[in-house]
Design a protein around this nucleic acid. Sequence first.
DNA 1: TTTGAATTTCAGGATATTCTGAAATTCGTG
DNA 2: CACGAATTTCAGAATATCCTGAAATTCAAA
Lengths: 174, 174
Amino acid sequence: MNKDASESLQKAKDDFVGQWGAMGSSWGINRTMAQIHALLLVSAEPLSTDQIMEDLRISRGNANTNLRDLVGWGLIHSVIRKGERKEFFAAEKDVWKIFCTIARERKRREVTPAMEVLQRCAAESKDDKSQEGRDFHRQMNDLLEFMRMGERVLDHIASSEESRVLKFAARFLS
Amino acid sequence: MNKDASESLQKAKDDFVGQWGAMGSSWGINRTMAQIHALLLVSAEPLSTDQIMEDLRISRGNANTNLRDLVGWGLIHSVIRKGERKEFFAAEKDVWKIFCTIARERKRREVTPAMEVLQRCAAESKDDKSQEGRDFHRQMNDLLEFMRMGERVLDHIASSEESRVLKFAARFLS
DNA sequence: TTTGAATTTCAGGATATTCTGAAATTCGTG
DNA sequence: CACGAATTTCAGAATATCCTGAAATTCAAA
């Protein structure tokens, strides 16, 4: 992963990349994507597609697809080096920024569509006066309201300074 | 799903169950499990395995496995009716409680193991004095610290009254 | 415009996950 | 006990997801 790293450091990095990749699955992220992200997270220098292929023993197609997806998420970006023809990739390393990016993207990809479903189901049952109907409508609205609140809080967190959020968290915990 | 529900209400419920199931995938939950949960969430009465099989058109084995998993998550519980031999299932419907349950379980199943990995990687690189080594160690610790903070906040949220949390959220948002 | 390195695409193969259905087991009841 | 309803288990089938490798495409440099 980096020729300068000592053997034991290299082992620790490989460990991280491997484990982080395995974790990806349970988070609904494919293994390769999580591994590439982990690899770039602990790489001192930007890496080329070929370096990533070699390091993780994966095909070019696989590397390319997942790199594009990671760029799409905003978790990595490409780096162009003077005089070099090929593209390199580097990960955002600031944990707070990573968190905000993931929160923003998961909201866009998963939370918003879910809320649209709830919205529609609530609307469809608005005029049903039976007990069943009222209960269902209530349940949809409860879920909706909860998610709206969560969304607002996350938006606010993601658009605040880390220090301000931490200060608030500290106050909350005390 | 319930013989009393009007046709349009029935359609809204089916819509919810179907869509919620599809959503499950992107949240790393299998479709059937999400569907069963959705079905029980909007069912006025507890349902038996056979009713669930019929409603969702799934096999007994599938129904049984996923019901057990949902019980394991604490999202549903079985209901024994006097004089009835078979088991019925009902979902917790309070949104706040559902949230706390999911937060607790995902923490146990996903966050804690991830933190153990980070902990180990940080330890393995503690004595490496190279720049590479220091950077890696720092990165592991940053991630770890961030997750610890998140964990503490979530724990605190999940063990507080909903009203207290909402009050704090309101203050944060203002 | 030509050349070839770099990147992208995607059909088909490889894996992983989920589901079925029936047999095995459990367990309340007579 | 013996019966049979209810539940559990699990091998194999069905499906969904991911990966490979090679051909097609893009694009900078000459």
